[in-house]
Simulated assay, not measured.
Amino acid sequence: MALVNPYLAFDGNCEEAFNFYKSVFGGEFLGGISRFSDMPSEHYSPGQENQVMHVMLPLGNGTSLMGSDTPGPEAAGKDANVSIAVSPDSEENAKHIFNGLAAGGTVIMPLDHAPWGALFGMLTDKFGFKWMVNYDANAGK
């Protein structure tokens, strides 16, 4: 079995976004925030020195959310046809995560009971990334 860890590309606001995600999920950045200035200058463009080269926020159960500032067409954000699915461990945690990520964003489907028995909701966060929150009390039983 392999773990899948989303790696988000930003156009200069990675640090702001990851501080926001840290406020929602809690925890600390693994290894801190690496900046382009930590590398030899031939590996980044002038003006990119203080931007994020790599950041990693552990979310639990061996998964992490990772990201970097990647200017240009590689920066995904709202145009990406991808959603990040989160499976919280409790209804309370599902509400906390959903409401936290929705702050400043757009709720696509409010967090509510879904036909498959789970508490489910979808949103786009204020950085343009799509999230699905699914808490299933019967999962793993």
Results as ranks from 00 to 15, higher is better:
15 E>A: 14
83 S>A: 09
65 L>P: 14
51 Q>S: 15
79 D>Q: 15
37 S>M: 07
92 E>N: 09
30 L>F: 12
17 A>S: 06
15 E>F: 06
81 N>M: 11
115 P>G: 02
53 M>L: 15
90 S>L: 05
43 H>C: 12
60 G>W: 08
108 I>P: 00
50 N>I: 02
73 P>W: 00
23 S>F: 01
26 G>A: 05
41 S>H: 05
54 H>D: 12
43 H>G: 05
43 H>I: 11
20 F>I: 07
138 N>F: 03
137 A>C: 05
132 M>E: 09
42 E>C: 04
11 D>S: 12
138 N>Q: 15
30 L>Q: 15
97 I>W: 12
73 P>S: 09
52 V>Y: 14
56 M>T: 15
113 H>C: 11
53 M>R: 06
63 T>Q: 15
16 E>K: 13
12 G>R: 11
65 L>E: 01
65 L>V: 05
18 F>D: 00
7 Y>C: 13
36 F>L: 11
100 G>H: 10
44 Y>N: 02
112 D>C: 12
95 K>Q: 14
32 G>I: 01
52 V>R: 12
8 L>H: 07
13 N>Y: 03
131 W>C: 02
93 N>W: 04
9 A>Y: 09
62 G>F: 13
27 G>Y: 08
20 F>K: 13
41 S>L: 03
106 T>K: 08
68 S>N: 11
